[in-house]
Amino acid sequence: MDRRDFIQKTIGAVIAIAGGGALGSALLKLLKEPDKKTMSENRPYAYYVSGPLRPPGAGPEELFLKKCIQCFLCAEVCPPKAIRFVSAGGGLKSTTPYIFPRERACILCMKCTEICPTSALAPLIEDDIYKGKKKVDMGTAVIDKRMCITHLGIGKCESCYTICPLKERAIIQEAMLRPKVLDDGCVGCGLCEEVCPVKDKAIRVRPPGDTLKNPSMETQFPAIFYPGATL
């Protein structure tokens, strides 16, 4: 082996090792569990303690992840374009669908559950949502009384009550028109969160497994590959 050949091979090996290392570290970064302590408001990647808010008809988080084949049929047929996908920063949860009601809420049209080929999204109970039983369980809305205009007594807003498709079952008005969410009736579509005029949203939807009732404890995944993605 002459010197030129040796130098060429060495450079090739160095490039190969560096490239492999870079690729490997990138992959590890993707697979790593994201840092849950970082907190930022009003970003589309806001996650909750128990995971993202899934589209209607999704069961428990683990079961949903097992069933979802990431075919994006649900997002395609969604008329308000409410369903979006977890970015690559979500690790193994990336490219699974979720809803960020602050930007665009679910309208409970149930087209995603009709089209889902693997029953990852399937209505829980075969019954009309407007008559009685719970068909969907995306989450529950929680009112932050420290921010709500009506609760504070600044004014009379009624936005959440007006837009709610399940009036008197999911949300009622107490004395002085103060809204109150009934946990048994609320399906978590998030229309109330979308229309709430308060900047940081006085009413927020939390996924079913989310035991934490303090709305300020929302966590967030870093947005690596979908920077600044808005609808």
Partner: peptide, 8 residues
């Protein structure tokens, strides 16, 4: 649909 591309 969204105007973005992902890792893929």
């Amino acid at each position: 649909f969204y105007g973005t591309v992902g890792f893929g």
